[in-house]
Design a protein around this nucleic acid. Structure first.
Lengths: 212, 212
DNA sequence: ACTGTTGTTTACTCGCGGGTATATTGCTTA
DNA sequence: TAAGCAATATACCCGCGAGTAAACAACAGT
């Protein structure tokens, strides 16, 4: 029989503190990823990030053990978003092409967001050995999911025959590249870009109706 | 009347020295670009480059005034190659689509070479202010050439109607991405990759013969 | 042979930035 | 009210790497 907590609260103070800690951690990541995307990882100092958050560097080290961990959590969040997009699309119904379309659209949308952009901007040489291996493995998994959908589409006839590996690289190149040129203040919304890129990749540059 | 040079040579020693100097400069760039592509610009020290060339750092400073200049000359060489590919294709005969096909193929091939790879791998934040502006301007010029060909093709009916800007970004994304995954020891030759990527971009993922 | 120039070295400076040791404040819990 | 922990700060350390000063070697031209 525990003594009653002084404050009437559905959560203990301990849980509240943990949530607080978690939200501060997120704030560090959110700030850091913007610096990384804008100035690059190496050109960003933790003093930059700390200053932007109105704290000092040791505070950041209270939440993260080193700079590499911060970068890895940033790309990790981006990869999770991509992974969810890929898995959700792969698992839904419809032809291979239907699923690939959905996948590409969601993928492109992630590429307009900070953590998604970070995935593409981060060269794996920037990560420490251990993180680098994980990073590569996660990217490969996503690629394999995409390739699987492409292969399904080739089997059911909804996608043109060809080298699935090359096709996957080619389409993911277009989508990843969105992270390099998308500008929230530009003329196209993220959604327009996603739809436009998907339709170009699906239909090709050649006008439909002509054999090529 | 100049006294005769001691050695019978079609070139003066002076010219020979200048050629020598030029070839050493190239050797520095060739070595540096490989480090940059493999480890990233910031992670590469000039000591790395010097050691690989069996010289010491000050020797490099005898040929270049700083690290930024080296990077800029590397991307400059890549951009020149891309520019030549784009200009040659834009100037030749044939429909917009014919020219775009040729352009994309050459562009992809450059992306399998060290200096081309460096263009894609280099985030412009890594360059110093002045070089960065030139870098951006050069990239934009190439983009505009490509977009011009795309627009020609839309006008003459050989390329499907659409947003030329978005199309250009989408196709150049695929081609730039080659620099990220191409492996000389991989299963496909540069030429096969170029042809394959072009044909996928031209024909689209959807099988031809079906309206979409 | 003498002088200047080119190429290269050894040995250095110096600042930046990742990371830490330690103190301080304040809240929590007994 | 004492003990302990969480959160933050101040004040450091230290290594790495860009860039330099100065000497030296080799050679060219006179």
């Amino acid at each position: 029989m525990a003594t009653l907590s002084p404050r009437q609260s559905p959560w203990s103070n301990r849980e509240a503190r943990e949530r607080e800690r978690e939200s501060k951690r997120e704030a560090v990541l959110a700030t850091a990823v913007q610096f990384f995307n804008q100035k690059g990882f190496h050109a960003t100092s933790l003093d930059d990030v700390a200053t932007a958050l109105n704290v000092t560097k040791p505070t950041i080290y209270h939440y993260f053990s080193n700079k590499d961990e911060i970068l890895f959590e940033c790309v990790g969040r981006g990869l999770s978003a991509l992974r969810e997009a890929a898995d959700a699309a792969a698992a839904r119904g419809g032809s291979g092409m239907d699923r690939l379309r959905a996948l590409m659209r969601e993928y492109a949308l992630v590429m307009t967001q900070d953590f998604g952009i970070c995935v593409t901007r981060t060269a794996d040489a920037e990560l420490a050995e251990e993180s680098r291996l994980k990073f590569r493995a996660l990217k490969r998994e996503i690629d394999e999911t995409i390739r699987g959908v492409v292969e399904d589409g080739m089997r059911d006839g909804s996608i043109a025959q060809g080298d699935a590996r090359l096709m996957t690289f080619t389409l993911s190149g277009s989508l990843n590249w969105v992270a390099r040129w998308y500008d929230p203040k530009g003329p196209m919304s993220a959604s327009e870009i996603a739809d436009g890129a998907v339709s170009m990749l699906v239909n090709g540059l050649a006008p439909r109706g002509e054999a090529v």
